[in-house]
Amino acid sequence: MNAQLNSRSLPDPSSTAPAPLVSIRGLRLSFPDQANKPLFGAAPRIEVLKGIDLDLPAGQITGIVGESGSGKSTLGRVMVRLLAPDTGTVLFDGQDIAQLDEAALRPLRRDLQMIFQDPMSSLNPRHRVWQIIAAPLRRFGLGGTRVEAVAALDKVGLGADFAERFPHELSGGQRQRVGIARAIALEPRFILADEIVSGLDVSSQAQVLTLLKTLAREMNLTLAFISHDLSVIRHLCDRVVVLYHGEILEQGPVAEVFAAPQSEITRTLLAAIPLPELDAHWFDD
């Protein structure tokens, strides 16, 4: 990695960005490679995150972009501590949560919410919509009645008659809005959104994104938004982080990064997006 590329990849202490809610330093994570496990002894490890330094400013939406295999989902799962890193620190509001055990994490979970990529698999098929939303509320002692679930549904633009439905009775976009309702009902401080629109068609995608943007502003949420689609990130996010093979290639305010991408990978990612406009030269490069 040359020096020029790195110039923007370290958080700049002198910038006027608000104080970070999540602050990650020296994050490394590896998985055992079961496919190449020798007959005896431990499997070799594949390094997925190779030293990540990253700040998520409070009240902002940070987009995390990269190709599949770049480690973006793994990074996200470390932020909400579904995964624990090998080394490195994850400061959430000043507290290092990188190696906390499940019991110590539980009181923090209310503030570390997540919206999943596949809403079909992330909503329990045996539970009704209102139960899905109410269960976390009950666990954190924040009520958990049907009335509160209906209020959360209302915030995501779904009527009270959705409360009694099962997830398989909803369309993809509606399911994803239930996923959002479940996360925001807890009034968390941080939400991770992992590829939440990649399975939706354009209209549902626009609906979900508009909704998320409005809610984030209203509730002053800090959001990490993982996506492979730079167009979506450009519309939704304040900042963008480009990940490649487990390393941060560049990061900065969206306007800056999109106006003058520093890394070749970012330029390739941008050039690969088919914009909804005629362009006879799109294929030439």
Partner: peptide
């Protein structure tokens, strides 16, 4: 392996509660 199990963890559920409340019905 389904996401709803992770989502129960995110929602503050204990391991045994996840097993009984989320997985068992399925």
């Amino acid at each position: 392996r389904m996401d709803y199990v992770d989502s129960a963890r995110i929602g503050g559920a204990r391991r045994l509660a996840t097993l009984v409340g989320e997985i068992l019905p399925n």
